[in-house]
Design a protein around this nucleic acid. Structure first.
Lengths: 252, 252
DNA sequence: TCCGAGCTTGAAACGTGTTATAGCTTTGGT
DNA sequence: ACCAAAGCTATAACACGTTTCAAGCTCGGA
């Protein structure tokens, strides 16, 4: 494909636009079509000719990255259950490579219209279902459940967490812990005897991590915060209920 | 409050604006601040003086409705487990009362910024946690799980389903079924022996409903659809895997 | 070599949410 | 009854995504 010089120039322009969008997303944050066109050395009309809309440009970029994520998932070597957890860890790594960029990208791409969900729930979802089927075939998940219904419910939790992270409501750490928690929780509902202990351990781990994160966040707000006495008491009360020994080192 | 005539006039204008927004959302769909101001008999600057932003207006409306929803949830009388399912049923009723309106409202309110999530996850979430605590106290849910972590995970599924419905990706029926499914699934993970049979029945019911809905949607697409042979074969194959006896009467 | 097709360009325009400013009306206190 | 302030109105403006359109360029094929 792309034989003639004209077509070459066209794909060149496409790449220029996508590259400029990546770069602007990375350091700018807000990406306007006019600055994008200027940065790509192209007229304002050209991105619309080549992509149709701003959203299409963002989705094209995200799509490429998600494709490479999928490939990485395909190369995971682990227990049929652990591979599910590790695939969410890969997502964390991907987002952590360039948080600014992905945050802007995802929140901008998911803002307008259902295309984002469509993209995520379409092709990606097949990979997820395949992983679940493998776990079922290995006798680690009950085989009487509908794979579609379960795959939808479990993946929804993961997508929701990523979106919350993109909106700035979660740290990457908390997103990961929530992913693990939600995954362990839903899997536990359809676990077989063989996988139950493993999943319960995952659930406990995720729960403990979440409690530690919350505890640390609460202490921080109590220390730093300019709050009135009422709020302060409320926070202190919440903190008391998180009776977990908090011994982690990393501070986010 | 609202003693002086000036303040009375102010709250009057507030109500006019909210009422006009409700009405425009209902039949128009897209709500522009200029038409909103015109319809409310007010200048374009006034809504910004009184509310600050378009989103605040939408959130104010949604908030009022969610409050009445909460009251209805508080008056539910049922088994500690079933009350959870029925509270999602109440949500379905609320949305079903004026689907156009709520669809536009929710998708518009959730589009920009984290305020929507903040509103939903804030006050509403307390009610949800209370219901879960009651079920735990009744011995129907394991008491060793962190109530916050579980409440977050389970409510995320419900919110995600409502958002997908608002975006037009789900019928109200399918949203309800997904809510029941996700709820049964997550609860099952922390069920005690007493509640397990009940939850398994809920899960089976939701699963069957989903399969019926999917089956019917697939048949419809096969009947109506202008599709190429390849897609047609794919759909027929999917349909075969949904080996459920489809005996419902209602059609959408 | 040269024409025509395909594509980019530049600019203008539309509708959007939002803000700023200047003027006018209303109102509460004296 | 009047004055000053509070607060609304009208209007213009900004930046944004998006569309449109005439004009021009560049390359592929004859």
């Amino acid at each position: 494909m792309a034989k003639t010089a004209r077509e070459l120039a066209k794909t060149q322009r496409r790449d220029d636009i996508l590259g400029a969008a990546r770069q602007l997303m990375r350091d700018g944050g807000d990406l306007s079509m006019r600055t994008l066109a200027e940065r790509a050395g192209v007229s304002i009309a050209t991105p619309y000719n080549l992509f149709g809309s701003k959203q299409s440009i963002l989705l094209a970029i995200l799509n490429a990255d998600l494709k490479s994520y999928e490939d990485a998932v395909g190369q995971l070597r682990a227990d049929e259950i652990d591979v599910l957890f590790e695939s969410t860890g890969l997502m964390t790594s991907l987002l952590g490579q360039d948080p600014e960029f992905y945050r802007n990208m995802i929140s901008a791409a998911s803002r307008d219209g259902p295309e984002f969900r469509h993209m995520v729930n379409g092709p990606r979802y097949i990979v997820w279902k395949k992983l679940l089927r493998q776990a079922t075939a290995a006798g680690l998940l009950a085989d009487h459940v509908d794979p579609d219904a379960f795959a939808i419910a479990s993946s929804q939790l993961l997508v929701a967490n990523v979106l919350e992270w993109a909106q700035g409501a979660l740290t990457l750490q908390e997103m990961t812990a929530r992913n693990h928690y939600g995954l362990a929780l839903t899997l536990l509902a359809i676990a077989t005897g063989r996988s139950r202990p493993q999943l319960e351990a995952h659930l406990r781990d995720a729960e403990r991590t979440l409690q530690q994160l919350w505890r640390r966040a609460l202490s921080k707000r109590l220390r730093d915060g300019e709050l009135n006495a009422e709020d302060r008491e409320l926070l202190a009360d919440q903190l008391k209920h998180l009776h977990t020994d908090d011994q982690l080192e990393t501070t986010q």
